[in-house]
């Protein structure tokens, strides 16, 4: 059991570290604000979930695991809210997302 637990949490932690790093590189490489936000959201969802999940497996069923789950739930609820607020206020400030438009008028199923 201990061996198995170690392997699972090792895999989760490695994956989490990888996704966190990818998000950091993406934030540096992307050309404009809105594309950078996509890269940041990778670290907020996959990175956080995998890292906290890995620690949770290591902690086993205890008070610490419940606290970690609460932190994860809180991060997953607040991060889209704050990035929506960021995107919306950037849009209101007149920063244009230079991109092709794809609008469908009425023929939405």
């Amino acid at each position: 059991m201990g061996m198995f637990q170690d392997i699972v949490s090792w895999i989760l932690l490695t994956g989490g570290g990888f996704f966190v790093l990818v998000g950091g590189i993406g934030v540096l490489r992307m050309p404009n604000l809105y594309t950078r936000m996509h890269a940041a959201s990778v670290t907020d969802t996959m990175g956080a979930a995998l890292v906290l999940g890995g620690i949770m497996v290591q902690a086993g069923p205890s008070l610490a695991a419940i606290k970690l789950a609460a932190i994860l739930l809180f991060l997953l609820i607040t991060s889209p809210t704050s990035s929506y607020a960021l995107a919306h206020s950037a849009l209101l400030a007149g920063i244009q997302p230079d991109a092709g438009r794809a609008a469908d008028p009425e023929d939405h199923p």
């Binding site: 966190v20 934030v27 907020d44 906290l52 620690i55 704050s82 960021l86």
Partner: peptide, 23 residues
Amino acid sequence: YDRVLSVNMFGTKTVLLLSVIAF
């Protein structure tokens, strides 16, 4: 807004780092 985005990300990473340090 770029700066706010990176500060927000910095904060999220701080939360992760704090949990890792806890263990």
